[in-house]
């Protein structure tokens, strides 16, 4: 009885690890490609996308150990380069806690002015018709032109979507927190 069950479980685990080994590569490639095409959206004029990785130590944050403990091993930002080889800007993925779960956004930052160019909502699980309106142009465009010196906080310089305070705040948090790190990375502590 136990033997049969164990054999079944073992065969199934073996099959699954085989399938996982085959598909995980493709899944990662897909995710990378999807992110790349999103980077093209938030950094208009970009032809190629480079990935920049920074470990907590290189970031120049106050407490690299604390970051590592929180599981933030490396920070990745994306550099958009146009056809002439000029750097268009940088993009980063930010996260904020929304109503139905984590809201992930991709933010494009202009190389020359450090201003936010575009914000794209990558995924969210907010209430359809209310929180999901963070995807709308009218809300997202409020972030354009913001810099590290702006508060980027709801009810200050960001208008909330009525009935969706939490969702709106999640996006603002994601943009504000990521923006500082990102500018610090590409300015190299200037």
């Amino acid at each position: 009885m136990v033997v049969v069950l164990s054999v079944i479980a073992m065969v199934s685990a073996a099959v699954l690890s085989l399938v996982y080994g085959k598909t995980s590569v493709i899944i990662e490639e897909n995710a990378a490609r999807a992110l790349e095409s999103s980077v093209l959206e938030v950094l208009p004029g970009t032809a190629t996308v480079n990935m920049i990785r920074r470990s907590p130590d290189e970031l120049g944050v106050d407490d690299p150990q604390e970051m590592r403990e929180k599981g933030q091993e490396t920070t990745i930002i994306y550099q958009g380069v146009d056809e002439q080889g000029q750097i268009v800007g940088y993009a980063f993925v930010g996260e904020g806690n929304g109503y139905g779960g984590v809201v992930r956004v991709l933010v494009g930052v202009d190389e020359a002015t450090d201003q936010v160019l575009n914000v794209k909502i990558l995924n969210h699980a907010e209430t359809p018709g209310l929180g999901s309106r963070i995807e709308e142009e009218g809300f997202r465009s409020q972030f354009a032109g913001k810099t590290v010196d702006d508060p980027i906080t709801v009810n200050q310089d960001i208008q909330i979507i009525s009935g969706a305070t939490i969702s709106s705040r999640a996006v603002a948090d994601a943009v504000r927190e990521g923006l500082q790190d990102t500018v610090r990375i590409y300015r190299g502590g200037e």
């Binding site: 109503y99 209430t127 018709g129 209310l130 929180g131 009525s162 009935g163 305070t165 939490i166």
Partner: peptide, 8 residues
């Protein structure tokens, strides 16, 4: 229940 959506 969708009326609760604007609760917070």
């Amino acid at each position: 229940f969708s009326g609760f959506a604007g609760l917070i």
